[in-house]
Nucleic acid binder design. Structure first.
Lengths: 340, 340
DNA sequence: GTTAGCACTCTTTCGAGGCGAGTGCTAAAC
DNA sequence: GTTTAGCACTCGCCTCGAAAGAGTGCTAAC
């Protein structure tokens, strides 16, 4: 077990290291954080903390650097002790109040606010679309043989896809079909919609071209609903941090952000609700060595969960990040419930 | 006037410098590009070229580096002599053939292909939306008092906006209104639509709430149509180039790309048709020092012009870039004409 | 248990010296 | 008159070594 004073020393090291990105020496801790004891005492404590695996020395005559374990302890402490204040920041609220109606614009704006404020990279995953429920849908004529299918879901997310339809369908006929479809499909999740559409094409009698159109539509929905959407914002922020003074490293970081599938898999693994964090090697991606990912889950409609997360160097201001994420997730949940 | 052989030397310096990013010495030019003459001869030519302002030396015992003027000469030469082959690359065609119907997806895919292939940053400006013509439109009920307006334009670009409508309008009523509106507005440009809608709200008698909805709609269209859209792709590619080994510089570069307004103004100034280039200081943005922007214009529908451009270090493979841009613009023009 | 003192280690910084690349100039050759 | 060989000169870059500085661990005293 770790003593009270060791905790204090550890916290001091973390705070100072987060600020300066330089190994922290015993004298610094004593002077800036714990003036009541001498540097020699701190030195002893630090030596013990190193043995416990919470600190390490880049080299023998340098100060100490917190380990992944140290950050873990610190973050768990922050979360458990409820030191996170979810009051949203002013500018996030301003972004929201500028009366944007369309969900995805709002999410985009929040991502932007988040990464402006934290100077890290923001990734928001919108919920798996198969879990979204159809609120209404409509077919709009584009050109002979093609129509635009617009699906409005319960959380306000709008999806559109171009589908092939029979050549002879005009606007009125498409509208009639839309009404029937909307009637049958309203309230169903996008996942269910596929199955229903397939059974349609087996049982309904009618123009084979229309049936072809319906199958096409099912396929499009399948395609649309099977992937979650990621909104990535401020990836260039990584260049602000001295850990990434090496361009090679920055490039590898940005490369990972391009691989959306990998990120999505990662986000899905994050703690099922509330706040969570992957610290350093916990991420399990070699190219993200030295990074942490902090995530917060939000609810969109019933049962479908999205995450909002921040990726930055392990040496990260966890307090600030947890706070921002927490309030953002909170607002997102409230917003997306509102439109249900 | 510049002699034939000076041109050859200049071209050799440019080609070698573009490849290596190192000052080019006389011996290198003689050995690799002009084995028929000696390095001393090249040395004399280079000295003259420096006097003419086409070459410069980073320091006295280094090789020569081409100046902005040199690139200008070279690019003008390439364009004027018709050395640009517009045959599209295979993978660009593949991206297109993967049957994407929606214009914006196609444009996105082309941007991606372009920056994968060139390793520079691609910026595509879609045409000013006020010039787009309405093909059809439809109002879709979202919730009481709000509807989604979907406008399909002649070039296949789809715009949607949430508008406030009277509370008592159900799907059928909205559809009826849509038909009337589509009838009145079809073929008009988005710019004209605003005016027409305003005159509506003065002359049509009816439910004031509907009128309010129409005014709201006009405002939304105004907002949507007044800004051009930029698609930026591969901004992190800049990190691949040794000029940007300095993180500070890379950051400034990425910062400029975030300022869309500035970019749009720049794109608008580019040569009104065909190929054009801003080389180095011609750009006129301090933070883009050492960069060039090459642009190609494309037509989308009648009268509305978009540009596709590539931003990279001044030391850029202009031949390749001009070629890729030219063929991409060509394909875009053809594609967007098709859907008219 | 805490602290002062001190020897020790290791990085960082700075300057000197040598190396190499490339030039400009001169004089000779074509 | 143009081209070429030869040579002295310049200047950036690399390496090496010494000095400085930061921080530790240990010991002995409080």
């Amino acid at each position: 077990m770790i003593t009270k004073r060791q905790k204090l020393v550890l916290e001091a090291v973390i705070l100072d290291y987060v600020q300066t990105c330089e190994p922290v020496g015993s004298r610094t801790v004593a002077r800036k954080y714990m003036p009541q004891v001498s540097s020699a005492t701190i030195r002893n404590e630090m030596s013990d903390l190193e043995e416990l695996g919470y600190l390490s020395q880049p080299h023998v005559s340098a100060g100490r650097v917190p380990s992944d374990n140290a950050y873990r302890l610190y973050v768990d402490h922050l979360i458990r002790e409820g030191l996170i204040d979810t009051t949203p920041r002013e500018d996030t609220q301003r972004a929201l109040s500028s009366r944007m109606h369309q969900t995805e614009d709002v999410v985009q704006a929040m991502a932007q606010a988040l990464c402006d404020w934290t100077h890290y990279t923001t990734v928001i995953m919108t919920p798996r679309q198969r879990d979204l429920r159809v609120s209404t849908l409509q077919l709009i004529p584009l050109r002979p043989g093609a129509a635009l299918l617009v699906i409005v879901t319960d959380s306000g997310i709008i999806r559109d896809a171009v589908v092939n339809v029979a050549e002879d369908l005009d606007a009125d006929k498409l509208y009639a079909i839309s009404r029937v479809l909307a009637d049958k499909l309203g309230g169903k999740s996008l996942g269910e919609v596929q199955g229903i559409l397939h059974s349609f094409s087996q049982f309904v009698e009618g123009d084979p071209k229309v049936l072809h159109g319906i199958a096409d539509l099912a396929r499009q929905i399948q395609k649309q609903s099977s992937n979650d959407t990621l909104i990535i914002c401020g990836s260039e922020n990584i260049l602000y941090h001295p850990e990434y003074a090496d361009v090679q490293k920055a490039r590898r970081f940005l490369k990972v952000l391009e691989d959306e599938d990998k990120l999505i898999r990662l986000m899905r693994h994050s703690s099922s609700e509330g706040l969570g964090a992957f610290i350093g090697s916990e991420i399990g991606i070699a190219d993200l060595e030295g990074c942490s990912i902090v995530t917060a889950a939000y609810q969109a409609g019933k049962g479908s969960r999205g995450t909002v997360s921040i990726i930055g160097p392990t040496r990260m201001n966890y307090q600030q990040v947890l706070q921002s994420l927490s309030s953002t997730a909170d607002m997102l949940s409230r917003m997306l419930r509102r439109t249900t």
